[in-house]
Amino acid sequence: MKTLVITESDESDIRLGSLSAIAFAQSLPEAQLDTLCVADVFGENPTADSHAAVIAAAVNQKSYELVVAAATTYAKDVVARAAGLCGGSMASDVISHRFDGDQLLLDRPMFAGAVTATVTLSSIPRFITVRASAYNPVERSIVDNLNSLDTESLDVDYSDVPCAHWKSLASRASHRPDVTEAKIVVSGGRAFKSTEDFERLVGGLADGLGGAAGSSRALVDAGITPNDLQVGQTGKIVAPDIYIALGISGAVQHLAGMKNSKTIIAVNTDPDAPIFSVADFGLVGDVYEVVPQLIAELNG
């Protein structure tokens, strides 16, 4: 299957999620992969309108049957538009797949993860975004052996199409890893009363464990944490080795983002909090008392 994998990179290297997208693509029979790295090709105006036009041109001119990317906000924006330009055959957030004869069956969550649906795509080219947390990333070295698509040879002209213009990106540079890329994620919920408390307790514990700090939507709404920390149905999807939920009730929309973590630990004052029903270990207690003790122990 002639496949194009759209990859993303950060300042240093290809993102972990893209390595998971490659893993998915490689697992398909007779996989023939090319990669297209966003940062390399799309220079000045990195908006969906122009990027999608390039991807659609590549698909049409090089006859790709499948386009794969990790389900990031970039892919949701751009790959979906490219799929729209190429006939609308797309499944997003795929978490597992298998074959029934020749037919590729894709599992994807619906209803905030309360339901898993098995779907098929009826026409080619197919566009698929996969949840990075559901596919083990390939080794970094594999990427160098893959052919990266030569976009010079493409005939792309979107000069007639009105495009949005990129102006700025206010990234909240943090010394901590991204929640989607860390082995340990410590998340805080409404229990935390201020940014200072969150930083000191959730941030402090994350640092002590070498992990990432995340949060529920309640704190993002309250302006206590930035939106890129939000875990859940409408935030980021994580599946670290250890997820520690501090003062988070466990609404389905939050669980949608973290319930596939390997080990889940919850601390909550309410013994009936729903978070305990998806956790492996629970402690009934006040995060303002428990967390300082944990940090002290780890540092001591």
Binding site: S89, G113, T116, A117, V119, L121, A266, A279, F281, L283
Partner: peptide, 20 residues
């Protein structure tokens, strides 16, 4: 439609929580 839903299943947590 390009996307056909063949079947659905409910996701139920299999975990049991050890209270510390």
């Amino acid at each position: 439609p390009k996307l056909e839903v063949l079947s659905m299943k409910s996701e139920i947590s299999q975990r049991s929580c050890v209270m510390l």
